[in-house]
Nucleic acid binder design. Structure first.
Lengths: 194, 194
DNA sequence: GTAGACAATGAATTGTTATTCATTTTTGTG
DNA sequence: CACAAAAATGAATAACAATTCATTGTCTAC
């Protein structure tokens, strides 16, 4: 297996992403991935240990990428509400920019967690970011004191994921990012309004 | 294949539910299901067309069951907010009462949708229920006029699913139903508070 | 130009598991 | 108790797809 991440490594990673998104991890075959990448079946094994490893590499790579962006987004916000707004905006933007990743994250992370119990889990990191934002919001006074943070952060993540999931089902035919502000307004103000 | 749903049919359905929840649909084998049900491998095929069919039957059966309960729950509410509260309560109660179903719904519905494009999709039905509730809430005045219903219903479903997902990850070690009221309060009032 | 190293190939191997079906067991009936 | 019909069995089959590896191609340095 090659050590340094060559061009071909990324070509295969990208092709595998497309094939996994199209057929699902379990139904996808090595031959399909090889064909998509324009290499022979055997070549895959010069770059990856096995099929599971391909999934692991894809998700690790994308997780790092997205998580860095999210971190930056949150840091650039002045107050809690702005941090939240930028986080959600970034989340939607990144997923809209890579629909294959969106599908894979939605469908295959559970399986990956099973085969690789210790891997950088994006949900966990996301929830930690949210905890910080909420606690800051409570200090700043723009969020209620009586919030149960453990529930609230799940509530927020679940709702964004739900919105992404619908967008994926619609095969990305509308603009996802424009949902960010209405969504944050819902979080902040609720259905009832002031 | 037997026509009338005998005791053995349900025994196999139930065992398959347990095995699918434990190993995931694709990794689960017919032999495991047969062992769990205490029958021979071949017996499975007297009751089901193939492996896919087992998944389809499980999900259809549970969907009908849960959807009827949800309908009743909504009908018993006097106003929109109470309907919403009862729907969420029912949702959490049913999933808490059948953790295998919770896992399967979370992991395998996407695949099922692929192999059986026209099946009674619980999300769709759920979203329709929510639409009605929200519209009624707007008429009654307990919900804002300027809500984008398409987004709001996704927001609500996503958040409940997120809460269930966390509960499943924690292997059902806490009381899920008690999340219902705090969750609905979040929907209604938001993070900001009055 | 060629020797050796490195990379890629894809046909053959291997392991797995869904599905079948000839046989056996159980059940119900006169 | 026979007898036939129905139900169940599980070993054998068949299909499929991950992985290997002997062979072939490509590149680099001298």
């Amino acid at each position: 297996m090659q050590k340094n991440k060559s061009e071909k490594y990324y070509k295969i990673l990208d092709s595998a992403g497309a094939v996994f998104a199209r057929h699902g991890f379990h139904k996808a075959t090595i031959s399909q991935i090889a064909a998509e990448a324009g290499v022979a079946d055997g070549t895959i094994y010069l770059y990856f240990k096995n099929k599971d490893d391909i999934l692991y590499q894809i998700i690790s790579f994308k997780t790092d990428l997205v998580f860095n962006k999210m971190h930056q987004a949150v840091e650039s916000g002045k107050n809690a509400e702005e941090k939240l707004r930028r986080l959600i905006h970034c989340h939607l933007e990144e997923f809209q920019g890579d629909q294959n990743m969106a599908v894979i994250f939605q469908s295959e992370v559970r399986y990956l967690r099973e085969i690789q119990s210790q891997f950088k889990d994006i949900s966990k990191m996301y929830l930690d970011l949210l905890s910080e934002i909420i606690e800051q919001g409570q200090i700043e006074g723009c969020m209620r004191q009586d919030l149960f943070v453990g529930l609230v952060k799940r509530f927020i993540l679940g709702a964004v994921e739900g919105v992404i999931s619908t967008w994926v089902s619609a095969e990305g035919r509308y603009d996802l990012v424009s949902m960010a502000d209405p969504l944050v307004d819902l979080y902040m103000t609720g259905l009832k309004g002031e």
